[in-house]
Design a protein around this nucleic acid. Structure first.
Lengths: 329, 329
DNA sequence: CGGAATGTTGGAAAAAGATTCCAACAATCC
DNA sequence: GGATTGTTGGAATCTTTTTCCAACATTCCG
């Protein structure tokens, strides 16, 4: 059955009638509605919001009338939500959260902040490179703010496409479709092990050489995990996984606890594995040398802050490592 | 450097002053603000919204005054956004989109809809199982609506944790932490054949190995059929189909009648193929052996619609194998 | 059973807030 | 330098919302 035939709410444009209804929503009503839901009691909700109970009652009734729905089952003991009420409650909560974010960010501006940029990045970038890159950026631009969220590479691309953020950082493997892409950093994988491991004496390793030993997997959606599974399959073997753990630090602790080998980026090892007495051996396979890229929807139309950040991130590796930097695509 | 020390906007509670400011935001102002940004011109924006220009001007100025920020650079030729304005524009857009969703969904209720449930699912589930499961669900509950979004398994878990949706479906591999998890589907497909078939001696099979023999297809809308067609195409071959039959039991009878190979879930074989003297060999391809699970935050506190959906999804595999399976496969 | 308690609703008057209209003003265009 | 385009300010008007108080419905409990 084709997916398009499922009777699911696909995002659709509002009809004219619904557009008109949109204007009958207001934030005070939403705030009061949430209060009533929280308190399950109109009177207490009114108290909490510092308003007369009858005003709240009127707002709720007018709203129900305007939309032609019942939000509450008026029970003897307080008010319980109908399904329509539950739906509204969810959307009301996220709407109010958004409004709060507006207030928070604008009051930052009123306190001197000069610009915001929203970013999405994958775990590798956030753990390895962004801490120092961003703090250096903030050193140069104290009055700018960054809103950074972690997502897997594929979701980073999706988020940038949808305009959820201006700048994304993800694996170069992720298909960035119509987005503009720039080189960010190379990312070298190392095999982490205890010094008493049979492989500990090696200078470099092929991944297949590690397949005779137990491995500690990263979380199953991570690109490192997926890529290494694929490499094992290509070699006609399977990884002997003792456990999957969610972060690079957890991998190192598992290695220390003698659970097996770990596979993480070298810079991550430098950050989280330092002082744990472990050995990190570079991988020789070419997929072990990964690349992170920066993606944006349209570099020419970034906000001033976004532009500044993009230029900074594109230059930072060259500055810091002395390696040739950026390219399109 | 620990991530927490990056000078990034971490989500934080609003201060009392910001809470007060929250009340100074209203949707009309936001709507007008977006209009002004779109038109880059206050007068045209006022026209578009059917209101006097001076009213718009006043709202914008009052807003700027209340938050102590400048949103526009008043240029001779229209109005251009400041960084604060850009930030507001982004949040205003998503807020208004949310409000529109409120209007759309509530007006569905006013037209008879009885319940909504928000779901997240990974691609595997959306492609393979949800089409048939949801359309069967809608057959039984015409007046319910589902809001379904696709995300990778890890993000499904995150979304359920954060309350973005009530019910999630993801790979059993994903760590569902504190969420409640229930079995949804086994994806363990077996190749069914007579004991005298050339492949009958094998322990496991790759799907491509079966493509040199005749197949018995399930009905053409079934996910197994679709998925196996897809796999054949990927391998650059086509399936040699002798017949398409409507249910798992019919497949087994055709196999018994020496019509070819069948491809059905192992659990289905256990129920309908038992005692038919057939051989069932597991498929080695990874699309042939996955398990999907259902995750919810707290099954005891689901909405009525969510509860119905959860119960339905939990029961559907068993039902289909034992009962519905014979009709719909 | 009946009165107190709890909680929701309705109406009129008062208060608050938003809109309009018009005039003023500032910066371009030609 | 006058016409044009576009934003802002003020006073009057209009709309919306709130408050206050009373009415009403249920449950609680002696």
């Amino acid at each position: 059955m084709p997916i398009s035939s499922i009777a699911v709410d696909l995002p659709r444009a509002a009809t004219p009638a619904e557009t008109a209804l949109t204007r009958r929503v207001d934030l005070t009503t939403l705030r009061l509605f949430v209060a009533v839901c929280d308190e399950q009691n109109l009177t207490r909700a009114a108290q909490r919001e510092g308003i007369a109970a009858s005003a709240v009652s009127k707002r709720m009734n007018d709203f129900e009338l305007a939309f032609g729905v019942t939000l509450f089952k008026r029970l003897a003991k307080g008010m319980a939500l109908t399904p329509a009420g539950e739906t509204l409650l969810h959307h009301a909560r996220v709407t109010l959260l958004n409004v709060e974010k507006i207030a928070v960010e604008l009051s930052e501006y009123s306190q001197g902040v000069r610009g915001h940029v929203r970013m999405l990045a994958n775990l590798s970038a956030i753990v390895q490179y962004l801490p120092e890159d961003l703090s250096a950026f903030f050193g140069a631009h104290e009055l700018l703010r960054v809103d950074l969220q972690e997502r897997p590479s594929g979701q980073v691309v999706r988020g940038i496409e949808e305009g959820a953020a201006e700048i994304g950082i993800c694996s170069v493997e992720a298909d960035s479709r119509a987005l503009e892409a720039f080189h960010y950093r190379y990312d070298n994988l190392v095999v982490v092990m205890r010094p008493d491991h049979p492989l500990a004496g090696r200078e470099r390793l092929l991944f297949t050489e590690t397949l005779d030993f137990d491995h500690i997997g990263l979380h199953t959606a991570s690109s490192i995990y997926l890529r290494s599974q694929y490499a094992a399959t290509q070699a006609g073997k399977t990884m002997r996984l003792r456990i999957n753990v969610p972060g690079f630090d957890a991998v190192c602790r598992m290695v220390q606890a003698n659970m097996g080998l770990g596979l993480i980026p070298d810079r991550a090892f430098a950050v989280v594995g330092a002082g744990m007495g472990l050995r990190a051996i570079p991988l020789r396979d070419d997929w072990g040398r990964r690349e992170l890229k920066i993606v944006v929807r349209d570099a020419a139309h970034l906000s001033a802050t976004g532009r500044l950040m993009l230029d900074y991130l594109r230059a930072v590796e060259t500055d810091r490592v002395g390696r040739v930097g950026s390219q399109r695509g």
